[in-house]
Design a protein around this nucleic acid. Structure first.
Length: 513
RNA sequence: GCGGGCGUAGCUCAAUUGGUAGAGCAUCAGCCUUCCAAGCUGAAUGUUGACGGUUCGAACCCGUUCGCCCGCUCCA
């Protein structure tokens, strides 16, 4: 494993040295879970987002029937009405107080642990107690059966009645808590007081800071799309089936951000919500699964490191009918990590907003003009992490070849490369810079390009290798004689000669989608 | 959030254990250089992660805090 971590450390070092990724506010000691993209990283990430937008929203592959599919884009605000997060379940379901066991390090949701009292009939005198995890009091009694039997035996056996009390009611008293046993290890008095673990960042809207003005930074971009479903339908003439795409920041106050930029507290998502007839959910889910997988492969995230993994039924959210995680094996882990999930979410989200948005009960149903059928569309959600893809592109591109002058270089897909080309005079004299400069100016009109006259040519090539620049045009002594320049290919350091007027055309051909 | 380790120039590391922080690489300038990090000359670079304490004196000892790494935990 040392070798693997070593690789990750080298990648992190290269990213800093060459200006791909910096720690946020580094001069003040940084802040866990936040990262900045430097000049090269910014170009790389923008290329990724542009490729996604172009390939998924502006010009997506033909649908299952071979015809064009309908896609439009939105760009929603980060702070929304807090009711959105009640409807989505982010406020209710994921802000529960938790308690920890200091002994066994177990963590429990306060509303899912119960104190089970064993009472002796007929006077109902409790003689023993234990704790268990369960989602209901009845379930708690059942779950406590084995523990209760043991406890009963310890206290002389005989008949008893078990009664479950929620921890919520017991925890209010310091005295009672001091004696509560842990549901996992049964040790007494080692539980912490209940603590809130809401993963949403909170803020206040307006000058008044109280509970009436609380708002949240969105923990996902999807809800802005759902909330605008009707607006998009009313303003664009799209009809089901169609999709809405969005690229934007989202925020999760992760307990423990780790693994470089992989689990950040501020991150960018590239999401599609595709709306279709309930009967066609499976078909569209398969379409998007294939489209998304092909996209990664097309951009060079291919081979053994890319691991699509269909989720088992137990693993999926209760409303989800199918889900595939597109995972990537990063050097920092033995387990593949999720880059994207393509989920079949049924009508869960639209129905929820129908319930929560007052007077909008019918806003999310559509009518099929042919059959007059009225239905709430089902949703297929390909949700990708832009920063995760960026990190995958970086680790996938990172190549070691000790035989080269540049033993480390970045083999980005040309479409993703931050710098597309460099123009070098072989030496800074004999009129070579004068020939090179106009070529550089011409390329710069359309592509990121660098011009460098300094240092030995090998050093300049090596610098471009670390930046992942796929092509370098070099003006040499022969250029003045026959008007040709050399093109150096990053991947194998091979060279060919082309007419000096043909540099831009050459790039256009190589960088075509 | 818990336990363990760590923090010195952009990077890799020194500093005789409490006595004014230095080297290589990289960077920049000049010379030289006709295809893969060559050479020569010169230059710049640090509140030793931050804050506080002990001391005549702290990179070094103590406390707090921030960050990084490893293992748990978490990951809608």
């Amino acid at each position: 494993m040392a070798g693997k971590n070593d690789k990750m450390e080298r990648i992190v070092a290269l990213c800093k040295r060459r200006g791909f990724i910096f720690q946020s506010s580094e001069i003040y000691g940084g802040l866990a879970g936040f990262w900045d993209y430097g000049p090269l990283g910014t170009e790389l990430k923008r290329n990724i987002k542009d490729a996604w937008w172009k390939d998924m929203v502006l010009s997506p592959p033909p649908g299952p029937d071979g015809k064009d599919i309908q896609m439009v884009g939105v760009d929603c605000s980060i702070i929304m009405n807090p009711r959105v997060w009640e409807a989505s379940g982010h406020v209710g379901g994921f802000s529960d107080p938790m308690i920890d066991c200091k002994e066994c390090k177990g963590r429990f949701r306060l509303d899912q642990v119960f104190h089970v009292l064993l009472k002796r009939e007929p006077n109902g005198e409790p003689f023993a107690a234990c704790s268990v995890e369960s989602d209901s009091p009845d379930g708690a009694v059942e779950a406590a059966e084995a523990k209760a039997k043991k406890l009963s035996k310890k206290h002389g056996g005989g008949d008893y009645v078990a009664e479950a009390i929620s921890f919520e009611s017991v925890m209010t008293s310091e005295e009672l808590r001091a004696n509560l046993p842990c549901p996992a290890c049964d040790k007494q008095g080692c539980l912490t007081e209940p603590r809130e673990f809401n993963l949403m960042f909170q803020t206040y809207v307006g000058a008044l800071q109280d509970h009436t003005s609380v708002a949240y930074l969105r923990p996902e971009t999807a809800q802005g799309i759902f909330a605008n479903f009707k607006n998009v339908m009313d303003s664009t003439r799209v009809k089901v089936p169609f999709g809405i795409g969005q690229i934007g920041k989202a925020f999760r106050n992760e307990i423990n951000p780790r693994n470089y930029t992989f689990r950040s507290r501020e991150f960018e998502q590239m999401e599609i919500e595709f709306f279709c007839h309930p009967d066609e959910g499976r078909k569209w889910w398969e379409y998007w699964r294939d489209v998304r997988l092909n996209w990664y492969e097309h951009l060079g995230i291919a081979g053994d490191n890319l691991r699509p993994r269909e989720q088992e039924e137990e693993e999926r959210a209760h409303y989800s009918q199918a889900c595939i995680d597109i995972e990537y094996l990063f050097p920092f882990s033995d387990e593949p990590q999720e880059l994207e999930g393509v989920a079949h979410r049924g009508c869960y989200d639209l129905s929820k907003h129908g319930q929560y948005a007052k007077g909008k009960e019918n806003a999310f149903a559509v009518i099929d003009e042919q059959t007059k059928e009225r239905f709430v569309p089902h949703v297929i959600e390909p949700s990708a992490g832009a920063d995760r893809f960026t990190l995958a592109a970086i680790t996938e591109a990172y190549t070691v070849d000790e035989n080269r002058a540049s033993p480390e270089f970045m083999k980005f897909h040309p479409r993703l490369a931050p710098i597309k080309a460099a123009v070098f005079p072989l030496v800074a004299k004999d009129g070579m810079p004068e020939i090179a400069e106009p070529i550089y100016r011409q390329i710069r009109e359309e592509y990121t390009c660098q011009f460098d006259t300094k240092a030995a040519i090998g050093k300049r090539y090596a610098r471009m290798d670390e930046a992942g620049t796929p092509f370098c045009f070099t003006i040499d002594g022969q250029t003045k004689e026959d008007g040709t320049v050399t093109v150096r290919n990053r991947d194998d350091a091979s060279q060919e000669r082309i007419p000096k007027e043909g540099c831009l055309k050459y790039l256009k051909e190589k960088l075509a989608r």
